[in-house]
Design a protein around this nucleic acid. Structure first.
Length: 634
DNA sequence: GCGATCAGTT
DNA sequence: CACAACTGATCGC
């Protein structure tokens, strides 16, 4: 359940998913999805009154969320104040202080969050940096890399802060089977039951919340049927869903509800009251979608668990697992991460500490082996407008382009940034693989997150048949210390590695965090002063043997840095994009040893009319002067 | 009487 | 098995 107070440090004049207290004074409201715990205060009379006296305050959300919200008469008054935004279409919004007229511009982009119909993340881009508010989300591993608007050209945008759905950000919830795997299990169970006779029916015991719709559509497709629900009104403008639901009770799959549905079920009645068709009693099973989680190395899992003679629980999650969140964060590498949910049994301080492992590390000088020198003083380049399909590699916090004499070194910069990726994520066990065995002792598996796992590297070793398998095992265990929660809080603290980080692409330092006004109550970090960053060397060392899936997938790119390879594909790509963007601006790339053919293509800048081509001896003199540090007449 | 809040339940 | 919402008790306006 979200405990987010509604405001972000960077843009405190907007409120998200909270509409009470201080949020009443916001200049703009954002609703990520239509679940009640994200709508606190949304039907309050105070807010209603504020809207009536305001000319500029609006509520921004997706079209689907707007539809779902207005379907509830309690929120109908919002109609004229809602602005629905298209997904993945950056939109500029003016944040106006109506008393003073003061104005701030921010660009917001809605990104599909995979939590329930209409659910989105909000990406804000403005003077205080790029900030991602995730709302509630379910991303599978690798999903972040597929979202174009989290990227700028070929690079991930520089994210100052992520306000994170941390519902399962706890190693206990290491893996949650993927949607596909869960769905497959449910389809199988339903198939086995309803195929027996037309009196065999299934009751999907879903909670009163949006988010199960994809289950309905998949079941509907698979069995060519509709699912019985209490009401269709909320879906009336959503043909994708509407065609799969019905209020006709004569169907074998029900997701209807009743306050006493469990009692009904005990009495062999469906929540809608159905108990027999044509005089023959129904044979009902209930399937309750519930979250199931498994340890890091657990291979024996089952997405369906029988809980009674005709009751089942089926794995289902609205939220990303620990490993999915880690994958997401290690891809984005934000400077700050703020949890919006505290997992049960944990404290804010604990979660905050654990999240710091996933924050971008402060520039670690020992890693800055090479810094390209010789940057030319150059003109400022206009940022291309949104929608430009040929974006240059560019630092997203400023307008500078990464124009250096050696463009191919940009690859190195990128890799250096990637090597700062938070470590410690062990690759989760493939669920597809693991589901082949049936075990339901979830208590046992839930604790297996402490176990070791094979990293990809180790798997490669096995493939190469280095040693006998018996020998390989102890080595593995030594290298393999999956983090347990306790590890993070019982060890010595290190110094802060989180504060401002220089962008390795330019000399501009990213905007410092903690800028702008802060309301202590809203933004309390519960951090003792001077104790910002706190992880033990022991932990770091043990974690360094793990690399996330994401990291692993990046590593092959690192190899491209071999000089002979860099001069091939990479340079060409960089050059092309630079040319396109700079188009006539000062740009004099100089490669180490330029061949004639390269010279003709890479130095495509006309000479000054009065200039002449320097002779070799003149050049030699010039180089000597340069080498001795003499000033040159320019 | 209405709404907010909390604890308990599903 | 920790989703999110509903129910009922209590309190304040």
């Amino acid at each position: 359940m979200s405990s987010f107070a509604g405001r972000m440090k960077e843009y405190p004049t907007i409120s998200l998913d909270r509409f009470d207290r201080e949020n009443l004074h916001a200049r703009a409201y954002f609703l990520s999805h239509c679940h009640k715990d994200h709508m606190k205060g949304l039907k309050g009379p105070l807010l209603k009154r504020k809207l009536q006296f305001s000319r500029t305050v609006r509520l921004y959300c997706s079209f689907v969320t707007k539809e779902l919200l207005l379907n509830n008469p309690k929120y109908a008054f919002w109609e004229e104040y809602i602005v629905a935004l298209e997904l993945e279409s950056p939109t500029q919004i003016s944040l106006v202080d109506e008393a003073s007229g003061e104005k701030e511009e921010v660009v917001v982009t809605l990104l599909p969050a995979g939590h329930c119909p209409g659910s989105v993340m909000f990406l804000f881009e403005g003077s205080k940096g790029n900030v991602l508010y995730t709302g509630d989300f379910r991303f599978a591993a690798g999903d972040a890399s597929r979202i174009e608007l989290l990227h700028s050209g070929s690079r991930v945008k520089d994210i100052q802060s992520v306000y994170l759905d941390s519902t399962f950000y706890d190693p206990r919830f290491y893996q949650i089977p993927t949607r596909e795997v869960c769905l497959k299990g449910i389809l199988e169970l339903v198939k086995n039951w309803i195929s027996q006779s037309s009196h065999h029916v299934v009751w999907l015991n879903c909670k009163a919340a949006y988010g199960y719709e994809y289950l309905f559509t998949n079941l509907g497709d698979e069995f060519n049927t509709q699912i019985h629900v209490n009401s269709l009104s909320m879906f009336k403008k959503m043909p994708e869903i509407l065609s799969y639901v019905t209020t006709d009770r004569r169907t074998q799959i029900h997701a209807c509800r009743h306050p006493k549905d469990d009692e009904y079920f005990q009495g062999n009645r469906l929540p809608c009251g159905c108990t027999a068709a044509d005089g023959t009693p129904l044979r009902i099973i209930s399937i309750k979608p519930s979250t199931m989680w498994f340890g890091e190395r657990t291979k024996k899992t089952n997405v369906i668990i029988k809980t009674g003679a005709s009751s089942f629980r089926a794995c289902f999650s609205f939220h990303s697992s620990y490993s999915e969140i880690k994958d997401f964060l290690s891809y984005l590498q934000p400077v700050n991460i703020y949890p919006s949910v505290i997992p049960i049994g944990r404290t804010l301080a604990e979660v905050t500490q654990l999240l710091k492992l996933m924050c971008r590390k402060q520039s670690d000088h020992s890693r800055l082996i090479y810094k390209p020198l010789g940057v030319l003083k150059r003109c400022r380049v206009e940022r291309p407008t949104y929608g430009n399909t040929h974006k240059p590699d560019r630092c997203s916090c400023c307008t500078c382009l990464q124009v250096t004499l050696r463009l191919n070194d940009m690859s190195l910069v990128s890799v250096l940034e990637k090597t700062q990726s938070p470590e410690g994520t062990a690759p989760p066990v493939s669920m597809e693989e693991s589901l082949s065995v049936t075990v339901t002792d979830t208590q046992a598996v839930a604790h297996n997150y402490m176990d070791c796992t094979e990293s990809n590297d180790e798997e490669e070793e096995e493939e190469e048949e280095h040693e006998g398998q018996g020998d390989a095992k102890p080595a593995k265990e030594e290298n393999c210390h999956a983090p347990k929660w306790e590890d993070f809080f019982t060890t010595e603290m290190l110094t802060d590695s989180q504060n401002s980080q220089s962008h390795s692409c330019c000399s501009v330092t990213s905007p410092s965090r903690m800028t702008g006004s802060q309301t202590p109550e809203l933004f309390s970090d519960e951090e003792p002063p001077g104790n910002d960053e706190n992880f033990s060397l022991t932990l770091s060392a043990s974690l360094s043997n793990h690399s996330s899936q994401n990291m692993d997938s990046c590593l092959p790119d690192t190899l491209i840095l071999a000089p002979e390879q860099r001069e091939q594909g990479n340079v060409r790509t960089s050059m092309t994009s630079q040319k396109e963007v700079n188009d006539g601006l000062i740009l004099q790339p100089e490669l180490d040893e330029v061949s004639d053919s390269q010279a003709s293509s890479d130095f495509n800048i006309p000479c000054t009319p009065e200039s002449k081509v320097p002779q070799p001896d003149e050049l030699l003199q010039l180089y000597r002067k340069l080498a001795s540090g003499e000033e040159l007449p320019i």
